[in-house]
Design a protein around this nucleic acid. Structure first.
Length: 432
RNA sequence: GGUGAGGUGCCUGAGAGGCCGAAAGGAUCAGUUUGCUAAACUGACGUACGGGAAACUGUACCGAGGGUUCGAAUCCCUCCCUCACCGCCA
């Protein structure tokens, strides 16, 4: 959520930035500013009234205690008015009206504010569609596979690694069953990713897979993306769509010490996404699932350092891909393709050689203060005042598409070759 | 699922209609003292929003929302949450 004070003081810039994100309701900016003005003037008036009420009540208390009951009663009922004192009854009526008015305006302001996405960073390219994302860099050699190369879903069957049909039987489409070396490969990747994150200074957390409404709101999934999450109605809990939600919410309502920054956490969780409306060939196999595993890295950074941090996180993810020997590219998402809460997002895609297409395996974002404002996450700055830090997170990495690319790109006559860095984790070198 | 006890500041914990934004202790920070460590002493020490150049000051907040009252952390109602014990159980 954007800060009203920022919108108020930077109207032109806000409008310009929102345009980059193709925000369809720029009129909200002026409406928010107007409502804010209204909130503040109403507040000032209400507080004056409350001040008088408090003073009068205090006076009555003193009169009562010193035995001047009649005088006190007179003020209460408004029969007499002492100099400078309006009758309490009248003040109460005004106070009630103004409070209701204030609550209504604040609610309206809030409703408009939550519709506004985060402002994109100045480096975000304009654009509407994924085609307009900027390719920042491409790295690694795309393998030349033989004519008879198989896509991962056929390899998975051939080597008995993943059973999609069994998942359908147990749960439904998009919930695959990993078997044998398929299951071991997955577990190896998770451990490898966690170990690498810890080496990079992230401390591991293991968090709940269901979150309450407040947490969903804190990181921005609610109210906008309610339909993307599985909801356990009986207990009003949401299955997490990403570890970002529980991990970042660790710091909800927290005031960090300045020296605590940056906070670095990593964690592995399954992720659950309804992906309503996504069907067809491009979601085959592991390409898009309702449940998948992911290792997430999360940072809370000083506002002055957050873009430096974002680059480091991007490099961390790239390092993993390099170590796994996967060709990849880094995209800077354009305004139209970015998430609602993000100020700058890099997507990492690996080249899936058998499908001849890029697959998104990571998304690294800086949310600036958009989340911390909602989370009421603050830190104490050098002046000792509370300030909103920047939150960042990224996948490092999402499992299924990594598995898909590894299977496809590393297929040979004699089987699938496991990348060297993974062998200590898988304890086998070949899937054959 | 049953029964009981509770939700107060960074923590422990008092307060039971006005003098309470809230005792006391601990923690933390600053200073004094001491040869170092430690201790002792003194002081500071919630959050948000508003006014003010500043000193300072106003309002709200004691789980949330209503109500009673001139006045509510304190009384009443509703909801949420936590803890303990029993039952069940990985």
């Amino acid at each position: 959520m954007l800060q009203v004070s920022y919108i108020r003081d930077n109207r032109e810039q806000v409008l310009e930035r929102l345009a980059v994100k193709n925000f369809k309701q720029p009129e909200l900016v002026n409406e928010v500013i107007e409502l804010d003005r209204n909130v503040r003037s109403t507040k000032i008036y209400l507080e004056k009234i409350q001040m008088q009420m408090n003073a009068t009540s205090k006076l009555i208390g003193e009169l009562m205690r010193s035995g001047k009951i009649e005088e006190a009663e007179a003020i209460k009922t408004g029969v007499t008015e002492l100099p400078g004192i309006t009758s309490l009854k009248k003040l109460k009526d005004i106070s009630k009206d103004e409070s209701e008015k204030l609550a209504a305006i604040e609610e309206e302001l809030y409703q408009k504010l939550v519709l506004m996405p985060n402002l994109p960073h100045s480096s975000v390219p304009k654009g509407l569609t994924p085609e307009e994302n900027e390719v920042v860099l491409e790295n690694g050699d795309k393998p030349n596979l033989p004519e008879n190369a198989l896509p991962h879903w056929e390899l998975a069957t051939k080597y008995n690694l993943i059973d999609f049909e069994l998942g359908v039987k147990i749960t439904g489409a998009g919930f695959p069953v990993y078997k044998n070396k398929g299951a071991k490969l997955q577990r190896a990747l998770i451990n490898y990713f966690i170990d690498e994150a810890e080496k990079a200074g992230y401390s591991e957390v293991s968090v709940p897979l269901m979150v309450n409404e407040a947490s969903g709101f804190g990181t921005g999934q609610l109210p906008d993306k309610e339909g993307q999450m599985y909801f356990v109605g009986e207990d009003k809990l949401f299955l997490i769509p990403t570890a970002e939600v529980p991990v970042t919410n660790i710091y909800r309502d927290v005031i960090l010490k300045g020296e605590d920054l940056p906070v670095k956490n990593c964690g592995h969780t399954p992720c659950f996404r309804r992906e309503a409306g996504s069907y067809g060939a491009h979601v085959r196999g592991l390409n898009r699932l309702h449940q998948f595993d992911k290792v997430e890295i999360v940072q809370i950074a000083h506002p002055d350092k957050s873009y430096e941090t974002l680059e480091l996180m991007s490099l961390h993810v790239q390092g993993l891909l390099q170590n796994l020997g996967l060709p990849y590219r880094v995209l800077r998402l354009c305004g139209g393709d970015m998430g609602f809460a993000s100020a700058l997002t890099y997507d990492m895609e690996t080249w899936s050689a058998a499908q001849q297409r890029w697959l998104e395996v990571s998304s690294v974002s800086n949310f600036e203060t958009f989340q911390s404002n909602r989370l009421k996450l603050r830190f104490r700055n050098a002046e000792g005042k509370t300030q909103l830090p920047h939150t960042l997170n990224g996948s490092a990495l999402a499992l299924p598409r990594i598995v898909a690319t590894l299977l496809e790109n590393n297929q040979t006559e004699k089987g699938i070759k496991i990348p060297e860095v993974l062998v200590p984790y898988t304890k086998f070198e070949w899937i054959d």
